[in-house]
Design a protein around this nucleic acid. Structure first.
Lengths: 181, 181
DNA sequence: GATAATTTATATCATTTTTATATATTTTTT
DNA sequence: AAAAAATATATAAAAATGATATAAATTATC
């Protein structure tokens, strides 16, 4: 259900092929808050086509699979608009990193250190991308809001990790409970 | 694969039934970063049992389904420890709320307002729960780290939304482009 | 005190999503 | 010149999710 709406959302900003939808989600503003793979996109597009929510034009290409460019129909636009007004489900985060940090005291300190550094550089990379995007301007107020939101949150994350990592790695270096010696 | 590791993780903190695993994830520290439903838990437990990573004791209960309490085996504990040291996948957020905010300029202002208020109260509720937990102390340094992390991040979110909501609702109240009149 | 709602407890089914794989050419990087 | 990445669609198998079924005890509300 979600993959279909996400496809409609991307198509609302312009015609695209399945491949281009993927790219748009990955490195466009949707990327921060949604994920999608080809194996969700292609079935979703087939279904949307069946339901008359998108139309398709095939461009024959030499020695490549035909490029199928999809376009939102009026019905599709209405469906999207309707879906956007349905009540939202609570946000959720899935973090392998934090999951592991919960067990920091039973993991090798070097492993914990490595994970923290990896996560920090991931966050910094992400922030850099958003700063760049901020300079090229936004297509909508929502995009600007989202970019600012993500930057703020990511910075808060990085700061917290930097300020509190000693709690974790310190805990791994020392025995959990004082042992009489 | 993930549901199994999550079950092992919960069981590493004490024996539990499927039902109790669900509860532990939902309102324990895992809740911030993982989700799991019964339809993932029960198959996962069956599989873990097959693989010898957990053992089970059935407690017959009058007029209720037997309660099956699962316990980590030494093999299970090693598997968990191994899984925790595997490289982490990038964190990801799925936000219905932010997705809708991307389209704030084409949604009715009242709808946008409502969504923002709903999200803010959700966040505040979440922060309150974490503050409470902070007072009752933590079982591990990881838990304390995670709780602090989540509080910091949620506060940053709430602050950003409060400070910037006018960008969205303002944009919905006024026409996107100045129209000559 | 009676009724309604929630909690306890397990489980399956249908749908959706994800991960991995297949194929094949062009463009870019090294 | 060779290797890697981008372009482009698609499917199969595995896993996760949401909905539903069942049933009684406990708690909350009127």
């Amino acid at each position: 259900m979600d993959a279909k709406i996400l496809c409609l959302a991307v198509l609302s900003q312009g015609d695209a092929s399945g491949y281009e939808i993927r790219k748009a989600v990955e490195d466009g503003p949707f990327g921060h808050i949604q994920d999608i793979g080809y194996s969700s996109i292609y079935p979703a597009l087939s279904r949307l086509l069946e339901d008359g929510l998108v139309s398709v034009t095939e461009y024959a290409q030499e020695r490549r699979p035909d490029k199928k460019v999809y376009r939102l129909t009026p019905d599709g636009r209405m469906t999207l608009l309707g879906a956007l007004q349905e009540p939202t489900m609570p946000d959720r985060t899935r973090s392998d990193f934090l999951f592991r940090m919960l067990f920091a005291d039973i993991l090798p300190p070097a492993t914990v250190e490595g994970m923290i550094d990896a996560r920090l550089s991931e966050i910094r990379h992400c922030i850099a991308r958003m700063e760049q995007r901020a300079q090229s301007g936004f297509d909508s107020p929502g995009e600007e809001f989202l970019n600012g939101f993500a930057m703020t949150v990511q910075r808060a994350m990085a700061d917290y990790i930097e300020d509190n990592r000693y709690q974790l790695v310190g805990s791994a270096l020392l025995p959990k409970r004082a042992v009489a010696e």
